[in-house]
Simulated assay, not measured.
Amino acid sequence: MPGPKPLDPSSSPRALLGAELRHRREQAGLTQDELGLRLFVSGSFIGQLEAGTRRMVPEYARLTDDILGTDGFFLRNCKAATKSKYPDHFAEAAEAEAIAQTIKEYAPLLIPGLLQTEAYARAVFRAYQPTAMEETIDELVAARLDRARLLAHPTTPLLWAVLDEAVLRRKVGGAGVMAEALGHIAALMRRHRVIAQVLPFEAGAHAALHGALKLMTFSDAPPLAYVDGLGTGRLLDDPATLARHELTYDLLLASALSPEASLALIESAAEAYVHDL
Rank of each mutant, 00 (worst) to 15 (best):
R55F: 04
M216P: 01
D65A: 01
A143Y: 07
H23I: 06
H210P: 00
R126F: 00
R191F: 04
A81L: 11
V141F: 00
D146E: 15
H89L: 05
A98S: 15
P2D: 06
T156P: 05
L263M: 08
T136E: 01
G18C: 13
D65E: 04
K83H: 08
M178G: 02
A203R: 04
L21H: 10
Y60L: 15
A123P: 08
T232M: 02
T31K: 08
V177W: 11
T232E: 01
E118Q: 14
V177H: 12
S84R: 07
E59V: 10
L30K: 07
L68I: 08
I67R: 07
T53G: 03
I99A: 02
E95Y: 11
C78Q: 00
Y226W: 14
T217Q: 14
P87H: 13
L235C: 04
P9C: 09
L265V: 06
N77K: 13
D238N: 12
D237I: 10
D228T: 00
A261N: 15
L168A: 03
A142T: 11
L75A: 04
P4H: 09
R38C: 09
I111E: 03
D65T: 05
V141G: 00
L35A: 01
P58V: 03
L209Y: 02
A152I: 07
A93Q: 14
L115H: 02
L109Q: 08
H89Q: 06
T53C: 08
Q129R: 03
G204M: 15
A181N: 02
L150K: 11
F218R: 01
A143T: 12
T156V: 15
T53N: 07
T232Y: 03
Y226A: 02
A94F: 05
Q129F: 14
G183T: 12
A119E: 14
E202I: 06
E267C: 02
A93R: 10
S42P: 09
